[in-house]
């Protein structure tokens, strides 16, 4: 699959059809997810704030998933020096930063009524904030170096270093005492797992967010490919 899509012309032909297909799938999944979100019963402890879960958890999952995508693209860019992998890494960063910001903001809006505070320097919250800073650092580093090749390599190394933070985020609620709740989707004990009335909307929203990310990522990679082609054409025109 990677070898097939590594060819920019094949990638452009594939993404031209795949981006709207993923986009349409995202609309359907998110619409169904919202439908189930608002017919789900209130939680006996958390009341209506439980509905924040249907947008907070998918955002948090996408924050990490998009960073894995950044890591894979950065690795391929560093090892194989492939321009399309570098374009994919660059295109991924703003989307990942937005999903991470959404996880932090919706988490704060859920935390205030449930915990009595918008923020605590808790292991889970702090490690997600560190993830957000990695996204910002990645984009800032790329913007700070004029030579795009050097900028791409430096940013790719930073992205790979940031991968260390992902297991910290995931296991933070097990490794340290935390205000944040533990795993409920894949909880070992059946009594800790989400009931279907909450699991269905959350799963639909998570799949919808993933499809939306896939669609937008492809659109942004296409934009990046065109930007680089425009730069080459401008250079050729300048050389006469």
């Amino acid at each position: 699959m990677f070898a097939f899509l590594a060819n920019p012309d094949r990638f452009m032909a594939f993404s031209r059809r795949a981006a709207p297909a993923f986009g349409a799938l995202a609309v359907l999944l998110i619409a169904a997810g919202l439908w189930y979100s608002f017919i789900a019963p209130e939680d006996y402890q958390q009341g209506d704030t439980v509905r924040i879960m249907f947008i907070h958890v998918p955002a948090a999952y996408l924050a990490m998933f998009s960073y894995i995508c950044l890591g894979v693209a950065s690795f391929l860019s560093l090892v194989y020096r492939h321009a399309l992998a570098d374009a994919a890494a660059r295109a991924c960063a703003p989307l990942g930063a937005v999903f991470t910001a959404l996880a932090l903001i919706t988490g704060a809006l859920w935390g205030k009524p449930m915990w009595g505070t918008w923020w605590v320097w808790d292991a889970r919250l702090t490690s997600v904030l560190v993830l957000f800073l990695f996204w910002l650092g990645y984009m800032a580093l790329r913007a700070a170096i004029d030579d795009e090749t050097k900028a791409g390599r430096a940013a790719a190394i930073l992205a790979l270093v940031g991968l260390v933070n992902l297991p910290v985020i995931h296991f933070s609620v097990e490794w340290w005492n935390s205000l944040h709740q533990g795993a409920t989707v894949f909880a070992a004990k059946a009594e800790n797992r989400l009931p279907p009335s909450y699991l269905i909307p959350m799963a639909l929203m998570a799949l919808g967010y993933t499809s939306a990310f896939g669609s937008l990522w492809l659109v942004r990679i296409r934009a990046e490919v065109w930007r680089r082609r425009a730069a080459v054409l401008a250079l050729q025109a300048a050389e006469g």
Binding site: G47, D48, R51, L109, W110
Partner: peptide, 15 residues
């Protein structure tokens, strides 16, 4: 549909 978030509306709808 349950669109009445009650006392939590100030947190649910901004999210």
């Amino acid at each position: 549909f349950d669109f009445d978030a009650g006392k939590y509306a100030a947190y649910v709808w901004p999210s």
